[in-house]
Amino acid sequence: MPQVEYKGKVFDVDEDGFIDSFDKWCPEWVDYVKESEGIQELTEEHWKVIHVLQDYYKKHGIAPMVRILTKVTGFKLKYIYELFPSGPGKGACKMAGLPKPTGCV
């Protein structure tokens, strides 16, 4: 598994750029990934989405369905794409350190 180093931290990532373990997540990771996900500056709203995903994952062990994410954050799906251009799965989940989405994608 390839490793990346950023601001003194080392991350193991897969081909799609997801980290291998949620426990390795730290704020530096978000800073490192943002550019490859088409994000210039992180706003409070970005962080809100990231925190909602992380809280849900810690509690339920899975990522929330899109409908739950939009309900809890109050952001419409279109706005989530404005925040995270590659969308809630590839963009936000990757930055939040959640495992890679699976299934028929």
Binding site: E15, D16, F18, G38, Y81, P85, S86, G87, P88, G89, K90, K94, K100, P101, T102, V105
Partner: peptide
């Protein structure tokens, strides 16, 4: 082929099937 693969283009959440 490895399991799954999450790639795509900005603005869309689908349309591309990643394979390694």
């Amino acid at each position: 082929w490895k399991h799954g693969g999450i790639v795509g283009v900005f603005g869309y959440g689908g349309g591309v099937i990643g394979r390694y």
